[in-house]
Simulated assay, not measured.
Amino acid sequence: MAKTIVLYYSATGTTKKAAEEVAKQLGADIAAIHPVKPYTATDLNWHDQSTRATVEQKQEHDGRVPIKDDLPDMAQYDNVIIGHPIWWGIPSRLIAATIDKLDLNGKVLATFGTSSSSGYDRSQSNVARTVKENGYQLALQQGAVLNSPAALNNWVKSLQLK
């Protein structure tokens, strides 16, 4: 029987709520992604161009934010879903670091974001590029912004998992 895990990073709790609902609907395990250095409210002030998150997000596409080495062993999972906030139009930089750390070969990968203003096209391209850079052979699903119960339900139904 195929097994699924939902990994997520949530700075404000919004992505955590979406991840919990996705995991519930799929009967999946769930685990949080933790940055080595947690973000403060000041770090996340997008109105200030000098804040940590703003500076990180404006790095070149290969920029990474270190994560704690506390992710579950992926060997037991066939499907990996990663949820993240969308910052400045793309996943927070620690998502690329997460994808780098996981052995995703042979798995189905689906990602979703939470945002009040961004679509998912740039995030999908960012994830696809990170997958390609790692040389993973996997089935990458179309991601979505889960900003409403209907969007979440429709996206979960659209997934083609093992």
Rank of each mutant, 00 (worst) to 15 (best):
M1I: 05
M1D: 07
K3L: 06
T4F: 01
V6S: 05
L7W: 05
Y9F: 14
Y9D: 06
S10G: 02
A11R: 11
K16Y: 01
K17H: 12
K17D: 13
K17Y: 12
A18D: 04
A18E: 08
A18R: 14
A19L: 11
E21M: 06
E21H: 11
V22P: 02
V22E: 10
V22K: 06
K24Y: 14
Q25W: 05
A28R: 13
A28Y: 13
I30P: 08
I30N: 10
A32W: 12
A32Q: 11
A32N: 11
H34C: 08
H34N: 14
H34M: 11
V36N: 13
K37D: 15
Y39W: 11
A41L: 11
A41C: 12
A41T: 15
T42W: 05
T42E: 14
L44G: 05
W46C: 09
W46P: 09
Q49E: 15
S50Q: 10
T51N: 10
T51D: 12
T54D: 11
E56K: 00
E56D: 07
E56C: 02
Q57D: 06
K58Y: 15
K58D: 15
K58R: 10
Q59L: 09
E60W: 15
H61Y: 13
H61Q: 13
G63M: 06
R64Q: 13
V65K: 04
P66G: 08
P66K: 07
I67L: 10
K68D: 14
K68T: 03
K68E: 12
D69E: 15
D70Q: 12
D70I: 07
P72C: 02
M74D: 15
A75Q: 12
Q76W: 12
Y77M: 03
Y77F: 14
V80P: 03
H84Y: 15
P85Y: 04
P85S: 05
I86A: 00
G89C: 00
G89N: 00
I90W: 02
P91F: 00
A96M: 13
A96D: 14
I99Y: 01
I99V: 04
K101L: 14
K101E: 13
L102V: 08
L104Y: 11
N105T: 14
N105S: 09
G106S: 07
K107W: 14
K107D: 05
A110Y: 02
A110T: 03
T111Y: 10
G113K: 00
G113V: 00
T114F: 00
S115H: 04
S117D: 02
Y120T: 07
R122H: 12
S123C: 06
Q124I: 00
S125W: 07
N126C: 04
V127A: 02
V127Y: 08
R129G: 13
T130C: 11
V131I: 15
N134G: 08
G135A: 04
Y136A: 11
Q137I: 10
L138K: 10
L138N: 02
L138M: 04
L140M: 12
Q142F: 06
G143L: 01
G143F: 01
V145D: 00
L146W: 07
L146R: 02
N147T: 02
N147K: 09
P149N: 10
P149A: 09
L152W: 07
L152G: 08
N154P: 09
W155R: 07
V156A: 02
V156F: 11
K157L: 10
S158I: 01
L159M: 08
L159Q: 03
L161Q: 02
L161S: 01
